[in-house]
Structures are given as structure tokens and as C-alpha cells.
């Protein structure tokens, strides 16, 4: 089965100081918006959509209304944000992959599951640090009030980010529209999210990633993986 790839347009996010919880939150929500939009298009089970308005933006994205899914995404994003904090000024990628699980009988007593990826979405993020020096550069006159200057600057970036985000979301919709043939048959799973998926974020160790995979396997309610 061929695996469709979708490289989403890069979003330039600002890395905010940690104490700016609110702004951090915005980043999380942006990423969440993208992930949820993709997953909404792949949640072919019964869905009760939930609208989420992004604060600061005039953008509404849709969630599946699946609590488990929301929690999973939130957890992932939290991990991602903490990774970003440790690796500032680095481009990063979040990959959302959909796969099928195939049982491969190795011997009489053991099965091996195999993942057949049929779709991968790459969310490209460029988390940059806008230091105070940067904002002051463009607002010399407002050195006395750096907060205001930074605010203006930030609003400008925020507007640009809104445009980019909208583009990314439309990109998702277009991709979903154009590529429909590669989807495997809808498994008879309960819940909204019908296909198994995984979200991979940059990780410092591969073993942790492996653990994640196993955990995810268990979470998605698939045949136990003995690998």
C-alpha cells in the first residue's frame, strides 16, 4: 500500500518565555488545531464535532469530540512544548501517521504485528525566539515602554501566523479532498477515531519513542504487540 505524505506548510511560531503561559498555550492550541483538523478528517466513526475557536485568531477548527483523543493530543503537545523549550531556535516536525496493523504469524505461538503506514502528515514548525532586543530594534522610540512595542510586534506576527495557519488548515482540507483512494477500509472500531495513528514528536532518545509506540498500540486497542 502506498503511503501518502503530506508536508504541511511551515509555521513560524514564536518561542515565548515560559512565564508567558498564555502565549505558550497559544502555540499549543495552534498545533492542536492542526492535529485535530487532520484527525477529524480521519475519524470516520461516529463523530460529534466540537468547534474550537482559537483565541486571538478568527479561526475555528473542529475536534472530534472524543475525550481520549483530546487528551492524547494535549499530552503530545505538552511533550512537544517542553522539547521546544529545551531546543530553542530549532526547526521541528511533528508527524502524524496513520497505519494499519497486520498480524504476521511468525510461529505457531507468537504473532508479530506489523504496521502498514498509509498516510503521514508532517507538521513543520519553526520555533523562533523573538528576543526583546529584536522587538526593540524595530521600535526604538518605544524603548521606554518595551512592553507596548513588543505587543505591537507580536500582534503583527500574530496576524501573519493566522494567515499561515489558515493556509495550513486549507492545505489539509485540500489534501483530504484530493486523496481519498489510499484509505484502507474503515475498521469496525468503536469511537470516533477509526484508524490507528501515532503522533511522533522530536525526541531525545529513541527508546522513549519506542515506548510511546507500544503505549499507543495499547491505547488504540489493537492486538497486543509482542515485539
Amino acid at each position: 500500500m502506498n503511503c501518502e505524505l503530506c508536508q504541511l506548510k511551515e509555521l513560524e511560531l514564536e518561542q515565548f518565555e515560559i512565564r508567558e503561559v498564555l502565549r505558550c498555550n497559544l502555540n499549543s492550541k495552534l498545533v492542536a488545531g492542526i492535529l485535530h483538523t487532520i484527525l477529524f478528517h480521519r475519524a470516520l466513526g461516529l463523530v460529534r464535532p466540537k468547534d474550537i475557536d482559537l483565541e486571538l485568531f478568527d479561526i475555528t477548527y473542529v475536534q472530534c469530540g472524543d475525550f481520549e483523543l483530546e487528551k492524547k493530543i494535549d499530552d503530545k503537545i505538552e511533550q512537544f512544548i517542553s522539547w521546544v523549550e529545551k531546543h530553542p531556535n530549532k526547526k521541528s516536525q511533528i508527524c502524524l501517521s496513520f497505519y494499519e496493523v497486520k498480524n504476521k504469524q511468525v510461529s505457531w505461538f507468537s504473532n508479530k504485528t506489523e504496521r502498514l503506514y498509509w498516510e503521514q502528515w508532517y507538521i513543520n514548525l519553526n520555533v523562533v525566539q523573538h528576543t526583546k532586543a529584536h522587538s526593540n530594534k524595530s521600535h526604538h522610540s518605544k524603548v521606554a515602554d518595551p512592553g507596548e512595542g513588543a505587543l505591537e510586534d507580536r500582534n503583527a506576527r500574530s496576524a501573519a501566523l493566522e494567515v499561515s495557519l489558515r493556509e495550513v488548515l486549507f492545505q489539509i482540507i485540500k489534501f483530504v479532498n484530493e486523496k481519498k483512494d489510499h484509505l484502507p477500509p474503515i475498521p469496525n472500531l468503536e469511537g470516533a477515531v477509526s484508524f490507528p495513528y501515532e503522533i511522533t514528536i522530536p525526541s531525545s532518545s529513541d527508546s522513549a519513542f519506542g515506548m510511546d509506540m507500544i503505549k499507543r498500540m495499547l491505547q488504540t486497542g489493537h492486538p497486543t504487540m509482542l515485539s
Binding site: 483538523t37 477529524f40 478528517h41 475519524a43 470516520l44 463523530v47 464535532p49 468547534d51 479561526i59 475555528t60 477548527y61 473542529v62 489558515r166 488548515l169 486549507f170 489539509i172 482540507i173 483530504v176 479532498n177 481519498k180 484509505l183 474503515i186
Partner: peptide
């Protein structure tokens, strides 16, 4: 049916965008 299902998902998201 599957394609229409997908199309409707897209429509739902698009309407909001």
C-alpha cells in the same frame, strides 16, 4: 459512501474556516 463521508468532513471544517 466513504468518499462522501470524507467530503462531508471537509465541508464541515471548511465551513468554519
Amino acid at each position: 459512501y466513504k468518499k462522501l463521508l470524507l467530503l462531508l468532513r471537509s465541508l464541515y471544517a471548511t465551513v468554519r474556516l
